[in-house]
Design a protein around this nucleic acid. Structure first.
Lengths: 236, 236
DNA sequence: GAGTGGTCTAGACCACGAC
DNA sequence: TCGTGGTCTAGACCACTCG
């Protein structure tokens, strides 16, 4: 574990343990440097990480403050992988509808940046939150990267398996979102009516080296799903 | 202008000018250091900025590569202020429905962190993209921060005015998103039917010092609006 | 093993905010 | 004016990728 990561974790823990609220002030840089016995830039790096995560904000000439959003039960659109973090207090279960190796659709091949005759794992699942339908998910995994999947893996967290089991490093993802009307079949899986609203999200997941390995299409039950994003305007 | 910002802009310009594509390699750190005549950490800071913006990704032991999302016409949910950047090729116009000083709703007061008897500017607008309705927006501005607004300002970019006119610095924002059915009145403004889908977004905008100054509620025309997010999984 | 990005240090100096 | 965070440097050393 790197120093600046460790320190970030400890500061976050400090905020949790003391149940600090939005706007509460943290110790000054000088203090943190001596406390953790590291140089200024290391502390700065930790704080930048926490700022990116939306945990704190820094004000020049004034101090370092806790940033908190007030609402619970929202799915973070930034924390890349799964619902675990944002919905950890909720009971998420999964039903696998389909799992097989096949040739990709043209759309999937394009988004995964592979040829139409390369193999993909196709996974179709319904996910539930506290017994209610949360979403219907179709995913295409590049089989030359995700070399093996089975029903057991796919019933649990696929991303944990990718990291722990396959030893791959998940990097960045591109996420496209819109609203639309539910189609007959989607409505059936979600227990809603055709024509009712859905949030529809397509995501392309990449490894740290930039290779896309997963293209997924998810339709959310609008009654059960709400999302949040913490944005920073550092870039101009 | 700070060095690392300037360099970030120039690198981004370089990518534009040479129409580099996803995965194309940029010059190595060493090269960039000598080219811009700065130290390693300054270049690193520029690159981190561009990475956060989703312009590049860095791979240890390998190089610095261009990151591009392929789709056009999506509204970025991260670039905090307005549509300008993501929809700059489109013609955005605005119709002001209402503009007045009033007392906040309980909801607005809570989100702006003010008392119910403090004044707010209430602004209701419809925004159009290429002549089609894009969204219906209601905003509450804390009048003790945004001291003055008029119809002219509100017809244009309010955020430009806040920055240039009032000299305020916009910091971070919290954004809550879900799908829902259009109500009668909303449907009328958007030219859609009651019960059709909408994307509904509430946003709380803060100054760099953490003060919330704008609480806004926006209903998007689902036929005209699609969103994208570039996520990084640096945090663990 | 060569090449390349990432971490970390110690310290000088700068810019903003609050009093 | 002082306290506080932000920028920038020069350089040592580390860790990953790839041929």
């Amino acid at each position: 574990m790197l120093k600046y990561q460790q320190i970030a974790i400890e500061i976050e823990k400090f905020i949790e343990d003391h149940t600090l609220q939005q706007g509460d002030k943290l110790p000054v840089l000088e203090k943190l440097m001596t406390q953790f016995e590291v140089s200024k830039s290391t502390i700065t790096k930790s704080l930048d990480l926490l700022e990116k995560k939306g945990v704190i904000f820094q004000v020049r000439g004034s101090g370092i403050f806790v940033r908190r959003h007030k609402r619970k039960g929202y799915i973070s659109l930034l924390s890349n992988q799964g619902f675990k973090e944002s919905l950890e207090d909720f009971n998420i279960t999964t039903k696998v509808i389909e799992l097989e190796v096949r040739k990709p659709t043209q759309e999937a091949a394009h988004n995964l940046n592979i040829e139409p005759d390369n193999d993909v794992y196709y996974v179709k699942r319904v996910r539930y939150i506290n017994g209610q339908t949360l979403c219907l998910e179709e995913s295409f995994y590049n089989k030359s990267i995700i070399t093996y999947l089975n029903k057991e893996i796919v019933s649990e967290s696929i991303f944990n398996y990718i990291r722990e089991g396959l030893g791959l490093k998940v990097g960045f993802s591109d996420l496209y979102l819109r609203a639309d009307k539910l189609k007959e079949e989607e409505a059936k899986y979600l227990g809603l009516k055709k024509g009712e609203p859905k949030i529809y999200v397509e995501t392309i997941f990449h490894l740290t080296n930039g290779q896309p390995f997963d293209f997924s299409k998810v339709s959310y039950n609008y009654e059960q799903s709400q999302f949040f994003i913490q944005a920073n305007s550092h870039f101009l």
